[in-house]
């Protein structure tokens, strides 16, 4: 077994534990490379299927190619897609791009709050109808008790302390000081009513591992990660366009990106350096993560 085989086996094991123990299980799909690898690993675990809904929080400020890619793959791979959004904040123009609030407050409203209320079913959410190929109001408001998320320990400080199975309180709080023990591949799969558990199959993967696996498995990835022929700009990390800047890089293929990460200009530059909100939260993103941010 090489290191990718090991990472894959561990992630598959975690997926199967989650599917066995959580009846209301969903997976966040941000359309980025990590959650697309996550989706691929789900299909590894379940022999070609993704037997639970995929949840996307649409801030309305996503890079437009992301929504097109999402809809295309959801139809092609027969995915059960659920979409949530903070409709009120957008209608009342209470966002950072509208000039109403700062970046952190905007992340909280459009991502953390939208996610929280999409997961617990208290805000309207939409489900992809494969027959009509349209998003339609979801008529089943059940709360998710298990949510699979593509967080990686190497991304930034707070994520390096996550558990594979991380409980969240009724208010979606993350109690960093009192996390469950994890050993011998046994995880917290029992939970009190009203609480839920975040599940992190990618915790041990690094950014480089993600690209190596994309290369090995030939996983189709949204093309905003690649520079256009002759161009020198691409996204390294995908988010909302007002707060995410492309990086200077001519990489047009997965192999070129891997080379760049191994020994090139990105070998020693943090992946989320293009994400403005990280810097405004004391570098830890911890405030947001405690409140439910991914």
């Amino acid at each position: 077994m090489n290191h990718l085989d090991r990472l894959e086996a561990q992630s598959v094991y975690i997926f199967r534990e989650a599917y066995r123990d959580f009846k209301q299980l969903g997976m966040l799909w941000s359309i980025g490379k990590d959650s697309t690898v996550l989706l691929w690993l789900a299909r590894k675990a379940f022999f070609g299927h993704a037997p639970f809904p995929l949840i996307h929080i649409d801030t309305s400020y996503k890079i437009p190619e992301m929504i097109a890619y999402r809809n295309e793959k959801a139809l092609e791979w027969n995915l059960n897609l659920i979409v949530g959004q903070n409709v009120d904040a957008l209608a009342n123009k209470q966002t950072y791009p509208d000039g109403a609030i700062d970046r952190i407050a905007c992340c909280r409203a459009l991502k953390a709050d939208a996610l929280k209320h999409t997961l617990d079913g208290t805000w309207p959410r939409w489900r992809l109808n494969h027959a009509t190929r349209q998003l339609e109001p979801d008529t089943n408001p059940a709360a998710f008790t298990g949510v699979i998320v593509g967080a990686r320990a190497d991304e930034e400080g707070s994520r390096s302390k996550e558990r594979y199975f991380s409980p969240r309180s009724q208010d979606h709080d993350w109690d960093v000081a009192d996390q469950p023990p994890e050993f011998w591949n046994q995880y917290k799969t029992d939970f009190a009513p009203g609480t839920h558990v975040r599940i992190h199959p990618l915790l041990d993967w690094t950014e480089l591992n993600i690209w190596e696996y994309i290369d090995r498995e030939n996983i189709p990835i949204i093309d905003t990660y690649f520079a256009k022929p002759g161009g020198n700009q691409r996204y390294r990390s995908l988010g909302c366009f007002p707060c995410t800047t492309p990086v200077e890089s001519p990489s047009q293929t997965v192999k070129e990106i891997i080379e760049e990460l191994r020994s090139g200009k990105f070998a020693n530059i943090a992946e989320r350096s293009g994400r403005a909100q990280d810097k405004e939260d004391g570098g830890g993103l911890e405030t947001l993560r405690r409140e439910g941010y991914m």
Partner: peptide, 14 residues
Amino acid sequence: SRFVIVDGYEIAGG
């Protein structure tokens, strides 16, 4: 031979 013990909702021992 390894196991964990769950007390209520928590892994409380191994």
